[in-house]
Amino acid sequence: MIHLHQIDPIAFSLGPVQVHWYGLMYLLAFLSAWWLGRLRIGAGRLPGVTMDGFSDLLFYSMLGVVLGGRIGYMLFYAFGELVANPLVLFKVWEGGMSFHGGLIGVLVAAAWWTRKHRLHFFDVMDFIAPLVPLGLGFGRLGNYIGGELWGKFTHAGWGIIFPHAPELADLPPEQLQSLYAQGLLDRFARHPSQLYEALLEGLVLFAVLWVYSLRPRHRYAVSGLFALLYGVFRFLVEFVRVPDNGLYVAFGWLTRGQILSTPLIVLGLALLALSRRAPVLQPQPAVEAAR
C-alpha cells in the first residue's frame, strides 16, 4: 500500500507554546533509558554505583546527547549553514540531530563521570549500551512524524508519499489530496527509511543487546556488539535513504552516514576481539534494591 504522509508535527499546544512530537520522542527516549537503567542498577550491573549515582550519569549523558547531537549535525551535515548563521545551532525544534555527534557527546560525558567515580570506562559503556537503542528508535519515529530524512523512490507498489519532498513541496494540501486519491502520486512514493531505522537501530538492536547483557559478559563485549550492529544497520539502510544534502561522498554511492558508520563497525569488531581475554564483571545487587 502507498500512503500519504499527513501527520502534524505539533502534538498539542499549551496556549502559545507548541509541543512537537520530535521533543516528545526525546522525552520518551530519556524516560526509557532511566527506567531500564534503574533495572540494571538494581540487578547490580554496575557494582558500587547507587541509584543517585546513576541519575547523575543519566543527566550528564542527556546533556552529551543533546549538545553533541546538535553540534555534530551542524558540523557534519550543515556546516555551511552554521557559518552563514551561527544562531541556527540553537534551533533544535526544527530537527537536525546527529547520532554520531550524540555518541561523541555521551562518550565525553561518561568519561568525565567515570573518572569521578573511579570506574573502568568500558564497564560503564557496557552498562549504558543496552539503554540506548530504544531512544534511537524513538528518535527515528520523530524523524518520520516530522517528514524528514526520507528514503529514495520505491517502485515496489508500496511506500510513503512525503509532501515536503522537493518534487511535491509547491503543491497545496487540497491538490495533494486530490492527486493522491486518483493514484497520480504513486510514482513519488518513497522508502520510509526512518521506520526501517526505528526497527533495526531501535527494536532489533535493543532486543539483541538486552538479552545478550542479561548474563555477565566479558568487558568490551556489550559495547562492541552495540557498535558493530549499529554500524552495520545504519550502513545498510543508507542504501535506500536519500543522502544528506542529496550528495554522495565517493564512488557515486557512498554516503556521509556510511563513512561515519564504518569506524563503528571496525571498533565493534576490535572490542569483541579484545573482550575474549578481558575479565567478566560480576553483578553486585545495589544497596537501594535490597531495602
Rank of each mutant, 00 (worst) to 15 (best):
M1G: 13
H5E: 05
Q6F: 01
Q6D: 14
I10Y: 09
I10K: 11
I10E: 13
F12N: 03
L14A: 14
P16V: 12
V17F: 14
V17A: 11
V19W: 06
V19N: 04
V19C: 10
Y22T: 10
L24R: 09
L31D: 03
L36P: 06
L36S: 02
G37L: 10
G37M: 05
G37A: 04
L39A: 10
L39Y: 09
R40N: 03
A43M: 08
L46V: 00
L46W: 00
F54W: 15
D56V: 05
D56Q: 14
L63T: 06
V65A: 08
G69W: 05
R70Q: 13
Y73S: 00
L75F: 12
A78F: 04
A78L: 04
V83S: 03
V83N: 08
P86D: 10
V88S: 14
L89H: 10
L89E: 06
F90T: 13
W93V: 01
W93R: 13
E94Y: 09
E94P: 07
G95R: 06
M97H: 05
W112N: 00
W113D: 01
W113P: 04
R115S: 09
K116F: 09
R118H: 14
H120F: 04
F121M: 12
F121K: 04
V124T: 15
D126Q: 08
D126H: 08
I128Y: 00
P133W: 04
L134M: 14
G135V: 00
L141T: 12
G142E: 04
Y144D: 04
E148H: 05
L149W: 10
W150L: 00
W150M: 06
G151N: 09
T154H: 10
G157F: 11
G157V: 12
W158D: 11
G159I: 11
F162I: 03
H164N: 15
A165S: 15
L168C: 09
L168W: 09
L168Y: 08
A169S: 13
D170W: 04
D170V: 05
P172M: 06
P173L: 06
Q175K: 15
S178E: 15
S178F: 07
A181M: 10
Q182R: 15
Q182H: 12
Q182D: 14
L184P: 02
F188V: 02
A189I: 07
H191S: 08
H191I: 06
P192D: 11
P192A: 07
L195S: 04
A198H: 01
L199K: 01
V204L: 15
F206G: 05
L209C: 07
L209V: 09
W210F: 15
W210V: 01
Y212R: 11
P216M: 06
P216K: 09
P216A: 13
P216D: 06
R217W: 11
R217N: 10
H218A: 12
A221Q: 14
A221Y: 13
L225Q: 06
F226M: 14
V232H: 09
F233R: 10
F235D: 07
L236C: 15
V237A: 05
V237P: 07
E238M: 03
E238G: 05
F239Q: 07
V240T: 13
P243W: 09
V249G: 00
A250G: 01
A250E: 03
G252M: 14
L254F: 15
T255V: 07
G257S: 11
I259E: 12
S261G: 11
T262H: 00
A270S: 06
V280L: 07
Q282T: 11
V287K: 13
R291H: 15
